[in-house]
Design a protein around this nucleic acid. Structure first.
Lengths: 188, 188
DNA sequence: GAATATACGGGACGAGCATCCCGTTTAGGA
DNA sequence: TCCTAAACGGGATGCTCGTCCCGTATATTC
């Protein structure tokens, strides 16, 4: 492979990461090419379809997430690890519009991409949840799909205005709701 | 106005309601025309832009919602009214993909449409929340934007598979999180 | 320094869609 | 029954994109 090919591939990848993060997955390929300082043909040649760009980028994100998850699971007690991971995911999604869209299921199947890349994101999340439930830190009837939807909700506030305080408050609310309810709390 | 004009306008409106509810706001105008049994020209003449279709349909939904909100506020104690409205909104959005998309801010500004139609949806929701907070039923630091985002989260589960039990569970979780926290709950 | 495979740029092409237009049809009154 | 304004259908048009192609340029090898 030629050196300029490697270099340009890298530039496209970086530009696409930035573009997806700020403008979302619907950003036109031409805009990515513009940001990378190359022609659209160069983008298409390195990534035959837009999907391949999604995939290449999402995979690195997934790797980071899986690593973070493993680290939390290894170093913290079950409940704490679960809630820390929840907060981490919300922060990631809040800073990356493309990731938020992917998590919301708009335009890209992130789980499928993770699986194709050899990562079992869903399984790892489910295990983290299950451990937290066994430890009595999380309601027993919650499913992993519930948790993923709630993460989407935490990021669904006013587009653009990512007030960190509001984000923290959202995570708090959802965390409180997920915690096993005390016996004296049973109204409704 | 001619009788067939009135009739066709009605047919288009009904078809669009059904199409938006099942297929979302991105459904092509041609598909709406097909469902209504008319040509695309007829749709365009009655509703010059797709936006006007959105608006006409959303307005009836908003009216229902505002009426329901007023009824709950008038007949139930503050906290109960608030949580009942939350559950109501989630049910509505779960049964209507177009409404869910509009609430999530994807492709249509529902608040603006409500305002143009003379309804103050946001204000009414905020008042309901404020009353529940004054009554001590809901955390004092929660904003109306938070609540709206959480509603989106409750509906963000796997597309299509609208398991009623899961939906109820999501509402429970979010409601629990929104309730004023007991003093003994302060872990984290 | 020449030869060649590799890569580049950006225009061409086609798909999907909203909107507009106009020749044809029809409702409703005289 | 006839006339005309109103309404209809669906093809034409224009726009935004993703993808493909090909004439040109350049890195690499001998």
């Amino acid at each position: 492979m030629r050196a300029d090919g490697v270099r340009n591939r890298r530039k496209v990848l970086d530009a696409a990461m930035a573009a997806f993060a700020t403008d979302g997955l619907a950003v036109p390929v031409a805009e990515i090419a513009r940001r990378a300082g190359v022609g659209t043909g160069t983008v298409s040649r390195h990534f035959p379809a837009k999907e391949s760009l999604y995939e290449a980028i999402v995979l690195t994100r997934v790797e980071e997430i899986v690593a973070r998850l493993a680290e939390l699971a290894a170093t913290r007690p079950p409940g704490e690890a679960f809630f820390a991971f929840l907060a981490y995911m919300v922060d990631q999604a809040a800073e990356n519009r493309g990731l938020a869209e992917a998590l919301a299921g708009a335009g890209f199947d992130i789980e499928a991409a993770a699986t194709r890349g050899g990562h079992d994101l869903d399984g790892a999340e489910a295990a983290l949840l299950a451990r937290a439930q066994q430890a009595g830190a999380v309601r027993a009837d919650v499913t992993n799909a519930d948790v993923k939807a709630l993460i989407v909700g935490c990021v669904a506030r006013e587009r653009g205005a990512t007030d960190p305080a509001a984000r923290r408050r959202m995570v708090e609310i959802v965390s409180a709701g997920l915690r096993r309810q005390g016996p004296a709390n049973g109204q409704r």
